[in-house]
């Protein structure tokens, strides 16, 4: 058996980051079923026509449904979501991927876009919670 190269707890040590593990994937399963349903135009139309009724077709938690209704992508990540699924909600709304991502960043869309044009967010101070580095 090969040794682990790092403790699994290290994956929880990255600032502002949720690593998408199998367990989180399971937590997000029904949320993600909803997201993938938005890959069909008729489903996008039905969702936008009555969001709550559409969400009630899925076995998502109430918290997940509320976070979808609020378009709180950061909260959805905390509730097991992964951006590759969640971006389908943003696309349904006609948001760019950058706008969707910026909504989690603690910055306005314009501030975020400016940060990206200037070279993005530095890794300095963003590598480890424990080390503060």
């Amino acid at each position: 058996m090969r040794a682990r190269l790092y403790a699994l707890s290290e994956l929880e040590d990255i600032p502002g980051t949720r690593v998408f593990t199998a367990r989180r994937s399971r937590q997000g399963y029904h949320l993600h079923k909803f997201c993938m349903s938005l890959m069909q135009e008729e489903n996008r139309e039905q969702f936008l026509a009555d969001e709550r009724a559409y969400l009630d077709r899925f076995r998502m938690t109430e918290e997940q449904k509320q976070a979808v209704l609020a378009r709180d992508l950061g909260r959805l990540i905390d509730l097991g979501g992964n951006m590759y699924f969640l971006v389908k909600i943003a696309s349904t709304d006609g948001w760019s991927a950058q706008k969707a991502v910026s909504s989690m960043s603690g910055m306005s869309a314009d501030e975020y876009a400016a940060m990206m044009r200037e070279g993005g967010r530095s890794p300095e101070g963003n590598r480890s919670i424990r080390e503060g580095s």
């Binding site: 502002g16 070279g119 530095s122």
Partner: peptide, 17 residues
């Protein structure tokens, strides 16, 4: 290459790496 699409660390770029 470098990118992060989630959370408050979104927008991470590491040009040196």
């Amino acid at each position: 290459m470098s990118h992060q699409l989630q959370g408050t660390r979104a927008g991470l770029i590491n040009a040196e790496f």
